[in-house]
C-alpha cells in the first residue's frame, strides 16, 4: 500500500525528517508516536503535499505510484486522506456543498458516477447516523464556529464519506473528551478493511485503547528509532521516551 523510503525533508533550511523508512500494507493500522518536535506532523503534511517543505531525498510510493510528484488534490483523489490536527474554518461555505463537491471530485477520478444532491444526502445521513452525529452539522459552514471536538468529528465524517485508501490521522485525539474520542475511534474502526490502511499519529496511548494498531513506531528527531507491536505503546506510557532516546 504505502512505501516510504529514506524520506528527508526540511523547512526553512531546518532538517526535520532525516530518513524515514516505513512500509504499510493493506488492512494494517500503524501508530506513530513520539515526543513534541520529533517530526510527526511534518510527516503527515509531507504525505498530504502541503507546501513549504523541501523534500531533499527519498520517495513515497502509494500503490506503486510516486506521490511526491503529485499535487495535494491529486494525492487526495488517489486516496490519501489527512485528518487535520487543526481543521480549518471556511466561513460561508456550506458543509453539505463542500462535502458533496469533494466526494464527487474523488468519485469522478475513480470513474464512478457523481452523486446528485438527493443521493448524496441519503448517503451522508446514513453515515452520520452510524457515527452518531447530528444532522445539524450539514447546515453549518465548514468548521466555522465548531468546537474543537466538533471539528474532529467533522474530519471523521469527511473521512468516512471519502473512503480513502490511506488515512493519516494527525493527533486527531488531542483535545477530545472521552465521548468524542469514542466517535473518532469508531469512525476509524468502521473504515478499516482489507483494502485500506491507516496511520494514526498520536501523543498518547489513550487513543490506542480504542484503535488497536498492528504496529507502533517511535519517531524521534526525524527518524523512526523503534518499531514494535501494540505493547510498545504500553511501554511508552509507563516509561516515557527517555529510555529509547538514550539508546538511539
Amino acid at each position: 500500500m504505502l512505501e516510504i523510503k529514506n524520506l528527508q525533508a526540511r523547512i526553512d533550511e531546518k532538517q526535520i525528517l532525516k530518513g524515514i523508512n516505513l512500509s504499510v500494507k493493506s488492512g494494517e493500522v500503524h501508530a506513530i508516536m513520539g515526543p513534541n518536535g520529533s517530526g510527526k506532523s511534518t510527516l503527515a503534511s509531507v504525505l498530504a503535499g502541503r507546501e513549504g517543505y523541501d523534500i531533499t531525498d527519498g520517495e513515497v510510493l502509494l500503490q506503486g505510484n510516486d506521490i511526491l510528484e503529485m499535487s495535494p488534490e491529486e494525492r487526495a483523489r488517489e486516496g490519501v486522506f489527512l485528518a487535520f490536527q487543526y481543521p480549518v474554518e471556511i466561513p460561508g461555505v456550506n458543509s453539505t456543498y463542500f462535502l458533496r463537491s469533494a466526494v464527487n471530485q474523488i468519485r469522478k477520478h475513480r470513474g464512478d458516477e457523481e452523486l446528485d444532491a438527493m443521493k448524496f444526502l441519503k448517503l451522508v445521513k446514513t453515515k452520520m447516523k452510524e457515527l452518531g452525529l447530528a444532522e445539524e452539522f450539514l447546515k453549518r459552514p465548514v468548521n466555522a464556529g465548531f468546537s474543537g471536538g466538533e471539528k474532529k468529528r467533522n474530519e471523521i465524517l469527511q473521512m468516512t464519506m471519502l473512503d480513502p485508501s490511506l488515512a493519516v490521522l494527525d493527533e486527531t485525539d488531542s483535545g477530545l473528551d472521552i465521548d468524542a474520542l469514542r466517535i473518532v475511534a469508531d469512525g476509524v474502526n468502521r473504515l478499516k478493511n482489507q483494502n485500506n490502511a491507516q496511520i494514526v499519529i498520536t501523543h498518547y496511548q489513550r487513543l490506542l485503547d480504542y484503535i488497536v494498531p498492528d504496529f507502533v513506531h517511535v519517531l524521534y528527531d526525524g527518524c523512526i528509532i523503534k518499531s514494535g507491536d501494540k505493547t510498545l505503546a504500553h511501554d511508552l506510557e509507563e516509561k516515557g521516551y527517555d529510555w529509547l532516546i538514550k539508546d538511539s
Binding site: 503535499g49 495535494p72 487526495a76 483523489r77 486522506f81 489527512l82 487535520f84 474554518e89 463542500f98
Partner: peptide, 18 residues
C-alpha cells in the same frame, strides 16, 4: 484553507470560487 480544500480533492481555483 486552500490546502484543506486541496486535501479533500478540490482544485485550488474551485476552492477559491467556493
Amino acid at each position: 484553507q486552500i490546502f484543506y480544500c486541496n486535501q479533500r480533492g478540490l482544485e485550488t481555483q474551485d476552492a477559491v470560487n467556493m
